[in-house]
């Protein structure tokens, strides 16, 4: 089966375990991307307030979760 066909089959699957596994993976991916982007924003001098308003969450929420972590910044 070609890659495209395989994808089409999987996407049309009604098996909950397929869909739920995808959601769980997506959540982890979102977490990774969010952290990467926030770190990038901080290293470019964005304030927590600016980051929070683009993400659509409160400043406290972002700050509580990410303050004190310098990920990519650490290697520079």
């Amino acid at each position: 089966m070609s890659q495209t066909n395989k994808l089409a089959t999987a996407a049309s699957s009604r098996d909950p375990s397929v869909g739920l596994r995808a959601v769980a993976s997506l959540r982890v991916l979102v977490e990774d991307l969010q952290e990467l982007q926030i770190d990038n924003a901080r290293s470019q001098g964005w304030s927590w307030q600016q980051i929070a308003s683009v993400l659509g969450v409160s400043k406290q929420a972002v700050h509580k979760k990410y303050a004190g972590r310098r990920l990519l910044g650490r290697r520079r």
Partner: peptide, 18 residues
């Protein structure tokens, strides 16, 4: 328990190419 890393096959299923 919680998934710790994204699974390429699972994401494929919803059209996301990891």
């Amino acid at each position: 328990g919680p998934v710790n890393q994204p699974d390429a096959v699972a994401l494929d299923a919803i059209g996301i190419d990891l």
